[in-house]
């Protein structure tokens, strides 16, 4: 009867909060130059984005969550 906070929701919200500093300035000004011909900023943005999505998928689709 006593409502416990849903752990999956909390984990997802934490991911969202983690994403905010990772996807905004000043961290965004860190990557510079290029890696294998592709601008580092481009790789950084899509990489972090994909990472967040992968983690969210893992958290949300886990069994028993």
């Amino acid at each position: 009867m006593v409502k416990r906070a849903n752990p999956t929701r909390q984990r997802l919200a934490a991911l969202g909060l983690l994403g905010v500093p990772l996807l905004t300035y000043p961290l965004l000004s860190l990557p510079g130059g290029e890696v294998a011909g592709i601008p580092a900023t481009y790789l950084y943005l899509f990489g972090i984005w994909a990472g967040l999505i992968a983690l969210a998928a893992w958290v949300a689709e886990r069994r028993g969550s």
């Binding site: 929701r9 997802l12 919200a13 969202g16 905010v20 984005w49």
Partner: peptide, 8 residues
């Protein structure tokens, strides 16, 4: 993307 993570 960030907003949707606030599922609650």
């Amino acid at each position: 993307t960030l907003m949707l993570l606030c599922v609650g």
